[in-house]
């Protein structure tokens, strides 16, 4: 049995064609069904629907053989026990530092200000500012980061930006790119050794689609 861990929404939608190329179709739509384990047309393959941030954990512990997770999530997780053999180039966006329209980010850095930053991505943000030699205080939030600078909780946010619509609607501007984000195929290390014959064709099919689309 091969178990593939996916999250609902954009990642599931953009993974469907990849799975189809490997001859795998889900028998149910996760948006319509409340089931967490979805069977597929292949009796030896099942999908499990988990929170995006939990995908690396399921794969690390071998509860899933394969998973699809954003680079943002993988960087926070650390990637222990995982292979990340393939950049699927789906669900692409950028992780950015954003501040209020009227905030002078670079001026503050020059003055050596110690900024308050709200983010869901504490590890990534810490590494980013440390590499720049900036002192920051990180405040962990679980959502609606954009609110932080507006209500005086923080000077800046570190968050994913795809179109920039939410930032504009809240009078924020992106000032610095932290990293490019896209989804990766992750593989449990033991699974790749033990189930190579069944996993390799799926990985090859994904790789072909990625190569054809980019």
């Amino acid at each position: 049995m091969i178990t593939i861990a996916l999250s609902k929404g954009r990642i599931f939608e953009e993974t469907t064609p990849l799975l189809a190329a490997a001859g795998i179709t889900a028998l149910e739509d996760p948006e319509a069904s409340r089931k967490l384990i979805l069977s597929t047309n292949r009796p030896d393959v099942r999908l499990i629907i988990v929170r995006a941030t939990d995908v690396p954990t399921y794969v690390q512990y071998g509860a899933a053989d394969l998973g699809i997770a954003g680079k943002d999530v993988l960087d926070e997780h650390g990637g222990e026990g995982l292979y990340q053999p393939l950049d699927l180039k789906i669900a692409r966006c950028r992780m950015m530092v954003a501040v209020r329209e009227d905030f002078d980010y670079f001026g503050s850095i020059r003055r050596g200000a110690r900024l308050k930053v709200v983010t869901k991505y504490v590890k990534t943000a810490r590494e980013h500012f440390a590499a720049k030699g900036m002192h920051v205080d990180l405040i962990k939030l679980y959502g609606s980061m954009e609110l932080g600078p507006l209500v005086g909780l923080a000077d800046a946010i570190v968050d994913l930006v795809s179109t920039g619509g939410t930032l504009r609607a809240n009078n924020l501007k992106a000032v610095e790119e932290v990293t490019d984000i896209s989804s990766r195929l992750v593989v449990n290390q033991a699974s790749l050794k033990l189930k190579r014959e069944s996993l390799q064709p799926i990985m090859d099919a994904f790789a072909q689609v990625v190569a054809a689309n980019n």
Binding site: Q60, Y61, G62, G81, N188, Q189, A190, K193, L194
Partner: peptide, 8 residues
């Protein structure tokens, strides 16, 4: 590695 173990 062996079946049933998630690591080496």
């Amino acid at each position: 590695y062996a079946q049933g173990y998630a690591g080496p």
